[in-house]
Design a protein around this nucleic acid. Structure first.
Lengths: 231, 231
DNA sequence: GATAAAAACTGATTCAGATCATAAAAATTA
DNA sequence: TAATTTTTATGATCTGAATCAGTTTTTATC
């Protein structure tokens, strides 16, 4: 596995680890009883960095951004699609606050699971804990990949990475409707909005991508891989 | 907790989570029987990114750098002092290779624990798994902090962060003998060696630090905090 | 203790990418 | 449908920090 590969600089997770499968019937029931389902509209905040974390969130349906608040700009850590857990770092002993903020790109449904129940399950069910460790490790691998991407690659490489990631990992299609603004792409790639726009235009002019409104289509994957690789 | 605080942009872990305390006597014995103690000299490689991970490492004594290999420069992820586990991300299912390379700054002693035994312990002992989750979450928090530091702060802030971290977290003294070269400091702060030297000189000229040979003493913590904060 | 090699240092130059200023287009809201 | 706000776009300018080209100092090796 190459860490500097675009596959590891990608801003989301690969697998949907079915950690809840590891629970016994009683434990599943315990989770059922100690959760609430909340529906969020597009653009709403699901959790706020630094606030008290009473729940772990499972994104049943939707698309969210996970980000660090910054002044004047945020830093988007990941784009997370449905069927993923969000807020796991909050189960860290001795610090039950959210490390990051999360907000929705589209209307989303979130299962809020009581954090103490979640912690209890980890302490009593090792198979479940093991799956959680898996998820955390995947997240770490992804964080390191992005680390490399953001500190080593320059603008073209960073943007190519994100576009490939969005296409292959998140929307799973060469053409997709992008709910992120150019500013969001900037917060994701750590570059200015103007630079995002300029490089998108370059990609467009070079027939690497096609942009019409919010719709983006990747036309030349080969060259995009190349750009991602070269940096 | 502020994520952009230097405390979170620091390049090492805070706590020594005594995860092995959670093991039963038999389990401890199992670990004892399935480990080897290896002594490394200064500058040697403990593990290599991408290679097959047969062991989880516990740094009993020493000081190491954990880094991603890059061409031509590496990216140092953390500086890890003694009594810490290294290589945990390798326990990720389906990919048992090391995410990063590790090499020593000083003579070091490492306990190599069989990875399968380690995985087994996680699957059978939830309290142990829970402690491991804690360690991973701490590592995630630290990675996000550094993420912010490296992408948002500029040179002065980044270097101040690292110097404060080395002093307060790793050497736990206002004066310390630094085994890292200027190049290492560069790979840690994602800046060129020349820039490290230049800014070190500025800090020196401004009486913020005192440098004599390999010894560094922080003279003015107040101003260093300020620089770290402002970026 | 001489020689080689690596690390530390310094100044000049270059450049990637941010910032600024402003305009056009699109999306909201009234 | 007009008015307002947000987003996208484009060119000009500026600057932080890398790169380059050296020299000096320290460390390692013979």
């Amino acid at each position: 596995m190459k860490i500097n590969n675009y596959e590891n600089t990608c801003a989301n997770f690969i697998h949907t680890t079915p950690c809840f499968d590891q629970l016994t019937e009683e434990e599943k029931e315990l989770v059922e009883k100690n959760q609430v389902k909340v529906v969020y509209k597009k653009g709403e905040n699901i959790c706020k960095q630094g606030s008290f974390a009473s729940h772990i969130m499972f994104l049943e349906e939707g698309l969210v951004k996970v980000y660090l608040e910054g002044n004047p700009r945020n830093l988007i850590l990941t784009i997370t699609p449905s069927s993923h857990l969000v807020g796991l770092p909050a189960i860290y002993e001795g610090n039950n606050t959210f490390l990051y903020s999360v907000s929705t790109y589209v209307d989303s449904t979130v299962k809020m699971i009581d954090i103490n129940i979640f912690k209890q399950l980890i302490r009593q069910n090792a198979a479940f804990a093991s799956k959680i460790i898996n998820i955390l490790n995947e997240s770490t691998a992804q964080a390191y990949g992005r680390f490399f991407c953001l500190t080593r690659k320059q603008l073209h490489g960073r943007l190519a990475d994100i576009l490939l990631c969005l296409s292959e990992r998140i929307f799973k299609s060469e053409q997709f409707n992008l709910p992120l603004s150019r500013n969001d792409l900037g917060e994701l790639t750590s570059m200015s909005t103007e630079s995002v726009i300029r490089i998108m235009k370059e990609f467009k002019d070079d027939n690497l991508i096609k942009v019409s409104g919010k719709t983006i289509k990747i036309l030349n994957f080969e060259k995009m891989y190349k750009i991602s690789e070269v940096g």
